[in-house]
Nucleic acid binder design. Structure first.
Length: 654
DNA sequence: CTAGGGTTAG
């Protein structure tokens, strides 16, 4: 019987279309007897079978139960069969096949049986069919139950069809009573916010007769995703009973909105409130630590995770988050260790590790890992390719990059986005093919974003091409009129090309727009996790004279090795002596001087900077790493530079 | 049946 049925269902799966046929639905079904009015014996029987079905964890097991039902002439027990349909669709059995067949074999259909099918269609993404079936159900005079509506709203949220959602919303009121059902209300809020109609969701929330922590949390998350942490916080404060999920939503919300300190503060409050923490909470905290980029936090969060009993090797999400965090905190070794130890790896783990290699200037490791990833079942996604292309770009591997870019769509089904074009323009630009990069930007099939022109402008700085720089900048000034960096870059490109008038014209433009340079700032962590900050030209640090002495000494020794201060990019109308002085007090040099003074000679010096490292400092630190024999790691706002023995991992492209 | 998660660019 089982074998026979297995065969039958298989053939039906392939023959019954997923689209609903009018013919089948026009058969006359009849309303079933309500469960409460069933005979006692039948009640017991159905309940028993339902609990057996609940325990099934494969389609084969469900088929066995079904065979038993048919064998014993119970094929009109619609409560059990509704459960059966529900279980089948849970296992992603196509709803047009087997579950549909079960539905049709029952003559006396109850709301649960109908709903099971409505749900089935909706979870499999056949929303229109699901709604159509709901219409049929209504025509037959079958009243919906609350999860008929939750299924429909969930589907609308998936396909972002708010108009359909509003129609069904109207139905909940028309049919009566369902609009005030808590479950239905919550799914409606979720539907509205998923569709981007936060106001509708909020209105619904305000009008709901009954709300629970889930209703609140849904809105808190919606505000957070909209970048409105103020409203999220307000709601959170008003929330009478806060649970772990609500707290986590706040922690994660701050982390996702680039407010890592607030995220950590919230996490602390959460712990003080005695709320339990789980892996989801920790992922938010780890992400906040990644943004802070400090080893101090990295070590702290790892301890928190371990003391909460979460092992990175056994939790793929925690592991992936840690890989990202360690690589952003400058410790590629720790990132690798986590990656190696992981028992399961997915596209996030690989992408994070690949991006880690790319940003730390190890393109070959990135590409090797990409190839290893392809050997596994893991499919790369658009983010993976950003990492891979960035790696190619840093290694100057234009040809490999081109090939991978071309293979994205045809081999991996990932259509290149504007961001991938950014990588390609960057790739071509870095190797000096500026004309080609410009051509790509001008002819790409998508609308070029600011990143595309920014990459081109950056390449013009490396290769000193003011003409193409002007084209790129003209786009950028329109797209990002207030982004100071673009003006600075263009002005420096002009200055390097000795086009002083143009350079000062740009400076004037900046002034006219009221734009002021962000003060350059570098910082480093000394012992005990104390952070020291240095601003360019700022000699107020108590050890400034010692720091300057160290730098002067270094400068003298570097000059012997052939170093010359890189003055050309400075557009200031001051004497060369003053320029040299200004250069020597760049924030990253001050931090370096302090690092050489204040840390033991066997450890590496880790400096962070809020802007891109300057050309002169890059040269200076390269030399310093050779003279002092120290490893110096600088994280600027773009990437990591590992200086060792007079070489930098970025290959002088940055 | 309803709520919170990790990767990306100049």
């Amino acid at each position: 019987m089982v074998a026979f049925f297995g065969k039958l269902s298989k053939s039906l799966v392939s023959f019954i279309p997923k689209q609903l046929s009018q013919e089948i639905l026009s058969q006359k079904p009849q309303t079933a007897v309500p469960f409460s009015q069933l005979q006692e014996q039948r009640k017991i029987l159905e309940s028993k079978l339902v609990s057996i079905l609940d325990g099934c964890n494969s389609v084969t097991q469900i088929q066995q139960v079904h065979a038993h039902i048919l064998r014993n002439g119970l094929d009109q027990c619609c409560y059990v069969l509704a459960k059966l349909v529900r279980m089948l669709t849970k296992f992603e059995v196509p709803v047009g096949g087997y579950p549909r067949l079960v539905f049709e074999q029952v003559r006396y259909r109850n709301p649960f049986l109908w709903t099971a099918l409505v749900r089935g269609y909706s979870v499999q993404g056949f929303v229109k069919e699901s709604v159509f079936l709901y219409g049929c159900m209504r025509r037959e005079g079958i009243g919906p139950v609350s999860f008929t509506f939750t299924a429909l709203f969930k589907a609308c949220g998936e396909i972002l069809d708010v108009n359909l959602g509003r129609q069904i919303h109207a139905q909940t009121i028309l049919v009566g009573g369902f609009a005030s059902d808590l479950f239905v209300g919550n799914t409606m809020i979720d539907m509205y916010v998923k569709c981007g109609c936060l106001d509708s969701g909020r209105k619904l929330f305000d009008e709901m007769p009954e709300r629970d922590v889930i209703s609140w949390t849904e809105l808190i998350v919606a505000y957070a995703k909209n970048g409105n942490m103020e409203s999220a916080g307000q709601l959170f404060d008003e929330l009478p009973v806060k649970d772990m999920v609500a707290w986590t939503a706040m922690v994660t919300g701050y982390a996702q909105n680039a407010q890592p300190r607030e995220a950590l503060e919230f996490f602390e409050r959460m712990q003080n409130a005695g709320v339990k923490v789980d892996d989801v909470t920790l992922v938010g905290v780890i992400s906040a630590c990644a943004q802070l980029g400090a080893a101090k936090y990295a070590n702290w969060v790892r301890e928190v995770a371990e003391s909460s009993g979460f092992v990175p090797a056994k939790n793929v999400v925690i592991g992936s988050a840690l890989i990202d965090m360690y690589s952003k905190c400058g410790s590629l070794e720790d990132a690798c260790k986590v990656f190696e130890a992981m028992e399961e790896r997915n596209v996030f783990s690989y992408s994070s590790m690949i991006a880690g290699f790319a940003v730390h200037g190890r393109p070959h490791d990135a590409l090797q890992l990409f190839n290893e990833m392809l050997d596994t079942e893991t499919k790369p996604n658009r983010v993976t390719f950003i990492g891979v292309l960035t790696a190619c770009s840093h290694a100057g591997m234009a040809e490999e990059g081109r090939q991978i870019f071309a293979s994205m769509e045809e081999r991996f089904g990932v259509p290149p986005s504007a961001d991938h074009y950014v990588c390609m323009v960057d790739l071509l630009g870095r190797v000096g093919q500026l004309e080609e990069a410009l051509h790509l930007a001008e002819t790409m099939p998508l609308e070029p974003n600011a990143g595309v022109w920014g990459a081109l402008l950056g390449a013009c700085r490396i290769h000193g091409n003011p003409d193409i720089a002007e084209i790129a900048a003209s786009h950028l000034f329109k797209m990002e009129p207030n982004a100071i960096g673009n003006y600075v870059l263009l002005s420096n490109i002009y200055a390097s090309a000795r086009q002083w008038d143009d350079a000062s014209r740009i400076r004037k433009l900046m002034r006219a727009k009221g734009l002021r340079k962000n003060p350059a700032c570098s910082w480093l962590e000394a012992k005990k996790g104390v952070v020291y900050e240095f601003f360019a030209g700022d000699l107020t640090h108590p050890e400034s004279s010692k720091i300057m002495q160290v730098l002067e000494d270094l400068l003298d020794r570097l000059k012997i090795n052939g170093y010359r201060p890189h003055l050309s990019a400075m557009a200031y109308d001051v004497s060369d002596e003053d320029k040299k002085r200004l250069l020597l007090t760049h924030s990253e040099k001050l931090a370096l001087g302090f690092g050489l003074l204040g840390t033991s000679s066997d450890s590496s010096i880790r400096i962070m900077k809020n802007l891109r490292i300057c050309e002169d400092c890059h040269l200076f630190i390269c030399g310093a790493s050779q003279i002092t024999g120290r490893e110096i790691i600088v994280r600027d706002n773009m990437r990591f530079h590992h200086f060792r023995d007079g070489q930098c991992s970025c290959g002088n492209f940055w």
